[in-house]
């Protein structure tokens, strides 16, 4: 779990859930030192990844449209964006 790429590819909700879990585990206090250091490292990476995701969030807004009997997706643009 502590691999940088793996962490960065986690969806935000998974990352923050794992971060909460890591903090909980560490706060329980019965983790062996090496494991604690590993968890800390993972936790910091998770926190970094979470912050980054929050900073760099790109929203995707799609609309389902029926064409020739099939449902397809199109980007949805609100009226302001269309103007």
């Amino acid at each position: 779990m502590s691999d940088q790429n793996q962490i960065e590819s986690l969806p935000f909700e998974k990352a923050i859930e794992r971060l909460e879990e890591v903090v909980r585990l560490l706060e329980k206090g019965d983790v062996p030192l090496e494991e604690a250091i590993r968890l800390f490292d993972e936790g910091m990476k998770l926190a970094g990844a979470c912050n980054q995701k929050l900073e760099w969030a790109e929203q995707q807004i799609e609309m389902l449209v029926q064409e020739n009997g099939e449902w397809i997706r199109k980007p949805f643009l609100s009226e302001e964006e269309l103007e």
Binding site: F12, A57, E58, Q59, Q60, E62, M63, L64
Partner: peptide, 11 residues
């Protein structure tokens, strides 16, 4: 509030 979320509109 939360620009992370994706929106799927069913018109």
């Amino acid at each position: 509030r939360y620009p992370l979320v994706h929106v799927l509109l069913f018109p």
